[in-house]
Amino acid sequence: MNWFAFRCIYCQRKLAIGSHGLCCSCNKQIRRFNYCGVCGSELAENTLGCGNCLQNRPAWHRMVIIGAYKMPLSSLIHRFKFQNSFYFDRTLARLLYLAIRDARRTHGLMLPEVIIPVPLHHFRHWRRGYNQADLLAGQLAKWLNIPCNNRLIKRVKHTRTQRGLSAAARRVNLQKAFRFADKKQACPYKSVALVDDVITTGSTLNALAGLFVQQGVEQIQVWGLARA
């Protein structure tokens, strides 16, 4: 029920169920597709592994996404990240939560030990006022009953924005950008899920996943709102 007349965060229609945040009509407009459960490439049917990731194998092992970075999802993500719409976290996290549940059926996904949001550099965090990945991870942790650890990894290099950069330039931009907060402590997990908003070339997640590979983590998943 919607006793308080909550409205869709995209089209402003009154919601049948206020807690959902997005009306059925706008939800249906999100472009969802069958995808490779490793690299997220669009495929004719859901599978694990495809020609794209065989040629350029990512550092992680599994991927979960809601859908394509197209309207209305792209607009919601942009407002969430850049227009101080931090309160979109519950609605977007719910969509990702449903995608995770679906991936357990379509891709045989096993849930990880811990959820880790992609960290922001402290300067960017200060300017924005929040880390959007951290907000998403916190919601998912509650619903999945999995701990969220937002202190394990630090972003120590204030990189230029990745938007508009080529894949090669993104990789250079992210060299030595992350490290474990405690250099002396080994990673205590064998399976982790890294949460991010938009997955484009995967350079950020590859850089992060590489750190966990070095620590002997056996299963690295990436959970993202959209694949661009």
Rank of each mutant, 00 (worst) to 15 (best):
L136F: 00
A93F: 12
K154A: 14
T106H: 06
K142V: 09
R105L: 13
R151W: 15
L135F: 03
D102Y: 13
P147G: 05
L98R: 15
K154G: 04
A141N: 10
L135Y: 01
L96R: 07
V156G: 08
R104G: 02
Q132W: 15
R127G: 09
D102N: 15
N149S: 09
A133V: 02
R151L: 14
K142I: 04
H121G: 08
G108C: 13
F123P: 11
R94Q: 15
Q139W: 12
I116G: 01
K154M: 07
K142G: 06
I115K: 07
Q139H: 11
L92G: 08
G108H: 15
L136A: 02
P119F: 07
R124P: 06
D134Y: 13
N149A: 12
I100Y: 09
R105C: 00
L92D: 00
G138Y: 02
L144Q: 13
H121A: 09
K154F: 14
Q132G: 09
E113S: 09
I116L: 14
D102E: 15
G129M: 14
P119H: 08
R127C: 01
N150M: 06
I116F: 04
N145I: 01
H158R: 09
A137V: 00
L95I: 10
N131G: 03
I116A: 08
P112K: 00
L135T: 09
I116C: 00
H125M: 05
L95D: 06
G129W: 14
Y130N: 01
P119E: 11
C148H: 04
L111K: 13
H125W: 07
D102M: 11
R94P: 06
G129K: 13
P119T: 10
V114E: 15
D134A: 13
L98Q: 10
L120G: 02
H122V: 08
H121V: 01
K142A: 14
W143M: 02
N131E: 04
L140H: 11
L109C: 03
L120E: 03
N150K: 06
H107C: 05
A137L: 10
H121T: 15
I153P: 07
A99E: 03
V114N: 07
Q132D: 11
A133D: 05
M110P: 05
D134K: 10
I100S: 00
Y130P: 07
P147K: 06
L96Q: 08
I153Y: 12
L95A: 10
L152R: 04
A133H: 03
L92P: 07
P112W: 01
R155W: 02
R128V: 03
M110S: 15
R101D: 00
L136I: 12
L95W: 01
Q139G: 00
L136D: 04
P112R: 08
Q132V: 07
L92R: 00
